[in-house]
Design a protein around this nucleic acid. Sequence first.
DNA 1: CAATTATATTCCGATATCGGCATGTGTCAA
DNA 2: TTGACACATGCCGATATCGGAATATAATTG
Lengths: 113, 113
Amino acid sequence: MARAATTSDVFNAIAEPQRREILVLLRAGERPVTELAQELRMTQPGASKHLRVLREVGLVRDRKAGKQRLYGLDARELRPVHDWIGGFERFWNESFNRLDEYVQNLKQARQEE
Amino acid sequence: MARAATTSDVFNAIAEPQRREILVLLRAGERPVTELAQELRMTQPGASKHLRVLREVGLVRDRKAGKQRLYGLDARELRPVHDWIGGFERFWNESFNRLDEYVQNLKQARQEE
DNA sequence: CAATTATATTCCGATATCGGCATGTGTCAA
DNA sequence: TTGACACATGCCGATATCGGAATATAATTG
């Protein structure tokens, strides 16, 4: 064994900044590859590769439109990710400033587990 | 240039399955490294390394407790991620089954942009 | 068919990642 | 000080990633 799972998993797909930008752009509607590449200042092969990853994890759909290939958003796979992170919602509301931390330290110093 | 940004970015930190498991465990409260390693069936160095990444992106805090080092959750950095993904919420509710897709194709075939 | 345009794929180099193992550092206790 | 724990770090191998350049494939047009 060497490296754990990678792409082909939504968490990983959206870990790439350029892929996130692509997804954002696609909210405005379907776009051909070249247009995406241009707007995001990346090469055409670069865009194609990122789109491939996004397609493999199901975040985008593509359909032929003559010479072009239009890519469109399919955000359904983002829901589970959103839900997973949502499971921490109540924790990021807890204040973690120095004062609270100090108090917590005192409390937790006594209560194991 | 070779590889874009990596760790030291929350999206990437949570792209690792084991790191996600650690975060989930920490919702129950602070834990020492060895305990985490045991429950997640990973080696101690393995756990330490993942915790380091999580600490560097700010997702966990650590404090010394005698011989041990207790790691605790600090979920604040998850909020922006949650928000970013939330920006797609209205899209994953759109139905994308074959019928709708067919209809959309017809519509979008005529309306450029 | 040839030429053109749009996109995908392949090959490459540089680099990062993860896991394993060994070893370092720090803390407590006798 | 010497052990015994708890944890961190370093080094290594295998592999994946991203970006770039060149090339292949597909569809359109003349």
